[in-house]
Nucleic acid binder design. Structure first.
Lengths: 225, 225
DNA sequence: TAACAATGTATCCGATTGGATTATTGGTAA
DNA sequence: TTACCAATAATCCAATCGGATACATTGTTA
């Protein structure tokens, strides 16, 4: 089975190299070539049904209309078409924008030729999108440092609880964060000083730390406070 | 150069298979084996310096303490150690939690043996984290449907210094945030324990607090850390 | 030069903390 | 109903902390 491919890149040399590379593989059939986003969308409007691409390889920086805009428009107009970014840019901003625009994959041009065709092909075998390892890692870092908004309305800011602290222990942790000592915790929670202390020590054990400062730095670090 | 690896998995058979697989590769040196998160953290506390792992391969579902909790604690306690998830689970929830907990990579166990060792090895050649293609795609989908909070990136993160702490005192404050005691601070900064203590007390005075916990909560609150 | 701030050192002492251990109670899952 | 666990409580002890106070050395500023 052949995969129909479109190539969108403003440099003719790039289009040719890619074209040849894919053609040699045997499983790819290049049915559309365009020099920029606008050109691509124009050609898509008139294309014959049987040449409608399965996958669009899209460069990002182009005149007239850039790749992100083309993906945004194209993924809405042709929902069944998979848009794969193929570019030299690997900065967070571009990655993020392309993904939000609806990119199905993100490949770096400096990947070896075999790597690109192989990854594209694998995408069809296992159904997942083609993503360069470097891009995958950048995505991970993006997710790590940016908080995701709750997808659902009210499911709002529920605190993480990696360490399975009990309700009481979380309460104790918040007391520690206020800078309270055993005695004060005991008073505020109406329990004995000894009990307060026991809780604190239990929290330490669960967090694998052995001081207030360590517990707090871990708690703040992991967004538990 | 050899990469020191730790393996954390509750099933002995998995540990053995992985152990052999990595050993055969030649570039990996397994220095720590643990049956669950708790076991792992315990062993890390006592491990010899020269056996401190570079990379920890962590299963997710384990008794006592699961992989996510172990990564959350471990990545804070040992910032230089890279935690790589190695599991059979590829659902969004687990992926997301593991990444937020500080995972450096995410590999699926059903990957072929060569694939796992190769990906791990490549991680060292190009510096990026090892991520299974399927996981990368799931991450992309996660980003697509979840809104990211303001990319903040460059802008706002300049450190405030409301309390006019001296350079040294800010340094001391960071030591406190790490959970160090007087003795340890002294050693790290090459000053006497007494001096370390004097600095700490001075910081307290400037912040108008009288305990580590209060100092830290104030510092975190005011964005000084 | 005199004053000053930041840094470094030291000692004394009571208060607090961290750790280990043991035990009772009430709720709940097997 | 037994078994388990969270929450409660207490005791002992060593280690650490917080506070006060005194003094020496720099480097900078008035």
């Amino acid at each position: 089975m052949q995969i129909k491919i479109a190539i969108v890149d403003d440099k003719a040399s790039n289009r040719n190299i890619l074209h040849d590379m894919l053609q040699r593989h045997g499983h790819f059939n290049i049915t559309l070539l365009a020099a920029d986003g606008k050109d691509f969308l124009d050609k898509m409007q008139q294309i014959e049904e049987k040449k409608m691409p399965d996958v669009v390889l899209m460069d990002l920086e182009m005149p007239n209309m850039d790749g992100v805009a083309a993906i945004a428009a194209g993924s809405s107009l042709y929902p069944s078409v998979k848009f794969v970014v193929l570019t030299i840019f690997d900065d967070e901003d571009k990655i993020f924008k392309a993904i939000k625009a609806g990119a199905f994959g993100y490949l770096l041009k400096d990947e070896s030729a075999e790597n690109i065709t192989d990854t594209l092909w694998q995408m069809y075998e296992n159904g997942s999108g083609p993503i360069s390892p470097g891009i995958a890692f950048k995505m991970l870092q993006l997710m790590q440092k940016n908080d995701l908004k709750p997808t659902l309305a009210s499911a709002a800011n529920k605190q993480e609880n990696f360490f399975q602290l009990s309700e009481r222990e979380q309460e104790i942790l918040r007391m520690l964060a206020k800078g309270l000592g055993y005695r004060e915790i005991g008073i505020q929670l109406n329990i004995s000083v000894n009990t307060a202390k026991k809780h604190v020590i239990n929290v330490y054990h669960k967090l694998h730390v052995n001081s207030r400062a360590q517990a707090l730095s871990l708690a703040y670090d992991k967004g538990m406070l």
